[in-house]
């Protein structure tokens, strides 16, 4: 519940950011750098004199966008692979599951690094590559669900009346297979936000002037002892958000998993 409330609050903040702060997130002021929190700047100013509160609010947009788009991609691929593998079985299943096994062997962060550094660190590449390296769990889950679902009465019945494969998959199997995916996806958003911050730390995350929590925090790491406000607020934003998503994910899991409710 708390998790859900926080998640909603975050959405509200990022959506209403322009109304919540009088400043422009990229407006810099060389004469007022690294000012401590005050009535004018609640979260202080950063190393270029920008308002940290404003940047954290706008950063929420970017970080949440990275989280959702990346997970969207992962869920899309994972679901497609899982459906095909589970529904058809046979060589398609073995081939796709071997691909999953192979992808699971790679240290994901290495793959992300390699691609981002060799192409360029744009927010789109970041979202896409996080998505492309994060679908395997979803694929396994969906496949497992499909394997049980495809022998169930309503599927067999649909087949009996001559429904096409596509129709069976879309109408009967997909809706029932999605609930476990929801949990993974929720956790995935949290993971993607952390991955972006790690990329930012290495200097190949979301690029300036666009604020993301990761790059604000990275800028703040140089001043951790005296300009604590620059790292504390984006750090807390990440911490609270990831925590909230995890709590929501846990809540969903408990609610959706009948076995644990016995």
């Amino acid at each position: 519940m708390i998790g859900g409330a926080i998640v909603l609050l975050l959405f509200a903040c990022s959506f209403f950011a322009p109304f919540l702060t009088p400043y422009d997130p990229s407006h810099l002021d060389a004469w007022h750098v690294l000012l401590p929190p005050s009535a004018r700047h609640w979260f202080g100013t950063d190393e270029l004199g920008r308002d940290v509160l404003t940047r954290v609010l706008y950063g929420a947009r970017v970080s949440l966008k990275v989280g959702f788009v990346a997970v969207g991609i992962a869920v899309f691929i994972g679901t497609a692979v899982g459906l095909v593998a589970g529904f058809y079985g046979g060589w398609r299943d073995s081939l796709l599951m071997r691909l999953v096994d192979i992808m699971l062997c790679f240290p994901t962060f290495f793959l992300i690094l390699a691609v981002i550094a060799m192409l360029e660190p744009s927010i789109w590449y970041i979202m896409i590559i996080i998505g492309l390296t994060g679908w395997m769990g979803v694929a396994r889950l969906v496949r497992a669900e499909v394997l049980t679902l495809r022998e169930r009465e309503f599927v067999l019945a649909a087949r009996g009346v001559g429904a096409s494969d596509l129709r069976i998959i879309v109408r009967h199997i997909l809706p029932n297979a999605l609930s476990p995916v929801l949990v993974t996806a929720t956790l995935g958003v949290a993971g993607a936000i952390l991955t972006e911050s790690a990329l930012s730390f290495l200097g190949i995350g979301v690029q300036p002037p666009t604020p993301s929590w990761g790059n604000i925090l990275t800028a703040g790491k140089e001043y951790i002892e005296f300009a604590w406000w620059l790292s504390l607020f984006p750090g807390l934003a990440i911490l609270v958000t990831v925590l909230a998503y995890n709590l929501v994910g846990e809540g969903l899991r408990d609610a959706l998993d009948p076995r644990l409710n016995r």
Binding site: A198, F201, K221, S231, G235, L239, V242, L243
Partner: peptide, 22 residues
């Protein structure tokens, strides 16, 4: 315990590392 383990997961590692280092 849940909160504790999730805190560990949710904290950007480089931030935690620098704070502890300091």
């Amino acid at each position: 315990l849940t909160l504790f383990v999730f805190l560990g997961f949710a904290m950007p590692t480089f931030w935690l590392a620098l704070l502890l280092m300091y």
